[in-house]
Design a protein around this nucleic acid. Structure first.
Lengths: 128, 128, 128, 128
DNA sequence: GTGGTCTAGACCACA
DNA sequence: GTGGTCTAGACCACA
């Protein structure tokens, strides 16, 4: 289910975070579900355990999972809200990029079309 | 005119590129205009000369400026098309981020609003 | 009676130790009382037997209980003094944390208030 | 100035964080001051660069420093408030420990004395 | 030079 | 078994 692009410029640990956020956001994982262990996931993704650990630490800090040493990592009760909060800044990022593009001669219509494109690809639309 | 945010997470050299693209896109600089020298700009922006050089190299590579060694850097005849081409991938970036946000529960309306926000801030609207 | 918070950052085995200390300190258990068996307690608390065993070993080592192999665990005659001795270092911990907080700009009043808060929540006040 | 206890149970990276918080809280470092580089500090403390890096990342995330790749780490404008916010939970910790100690037979006076002890050791009292 | 990421592999406390 | 910390050392983009 988790797909990692090792060549991508976005760090692997961040890709892992995003992937797990998706699993939760789309309802594939729900509150109190146990995440795979650091070691399992590192084998699964062929990534270093430290890298996976870093992703888990990030998720924990953000309140998306709770991890208890010796037990494992679980989807936090507050996961969905935490995910939404964490994503807020991505909205600002869109605004910033859009501003640049408008400066450079793109039309608002072209930008709105970019959003529409994302929306039409969104296969989980009906789940939410 | 050029504004650099040293704290921003987007690299300074990229901010310089974007700034110069804007100058050209908005008509403040036109074909064959001479850019400030690397040394001048590095003083003006209080930036490392290497950083400014990197921005110039990028602009040259993209066909936005032509630099003749020993003489300086000039706005290329093809600048405006080159800028538009270079910006194309930013559009894709918007689509990618939008897709993530939709996954996570944001609505299309919220994303469209982010574009509108950028548009309403766009003070150069009438120039283009 | 024993309450374990599985999410808490303080290790479960330590929570068990503290709980039993409380039982003894508040007089709910007295000298020579028999503790539940490791197996019983692990079922009761839904905790790993190893974890319960670790708590018992700690209590034994501290002289709070005496365990006779094959028979079980009993509140030691010296339990109350042993508990007090074991707790001494927690006092030092408070001093250490307090020092950090004072460094960082908290006032003595705020720290004293934290103690008062604990005192006012202390439902066993009259028992002791 | 920075003192690390390698044997202590509190992680080295956390000790580094606390040390830097102190430097800022006591006014030894002020807004926009440059922190030593990761490499410098790792040599100075005889700790691994990764460990120092982890401390810096934590400080950055908490809004206590801002780090820009290639430039260095600087005391953030919001540092002092961020430090205070981050310390809030330590106050709760004091309350929790105090509660345990009261259960076990310590008196409120003994706990208040622990605070007084910290206060009398606080050599920076007059700076703040 | 700077910080950021990643791998490889060890060791620890905890369950 | 689990997660958490740490070391050693590589490589990268950026300034």
């Amino acid at each position: 289910m988790l797909v990692i692009d090792k060549i991508s410029r976005t760090p692997i640990y961040e890709q892992i975070v995003t992937n797990i956020e998706r699993e939760i956001a789309t309802g594939l994982m729900v509150e109190n579900d146990k995440l795979p262990s650091v070691r399992e996931l590192s084998v699964l993704l062929d990534a270093n355990p430290n890298t996976v650990q870093k992703a888990f630490t990030e998720l924990d800090r953000a309140g998306i999972v709770v991890s208890s040493p010796g037990k494992g990592c679980y989807v936090a009760p507050t996961a969905r809200e935490a995910i939404r909060a964490r994503s807020q800044c991505k909205l600002d990022e869109i605004t910033a990029i859009a501003r640049d593009l408008l400066y450079v001669g793109f039309t608002k219509q072209e930008l709105l079309a970019a959003i529409e494109r994302a929306d039409s690809e969104n296969t989980f639309k009906n789940i939410k």
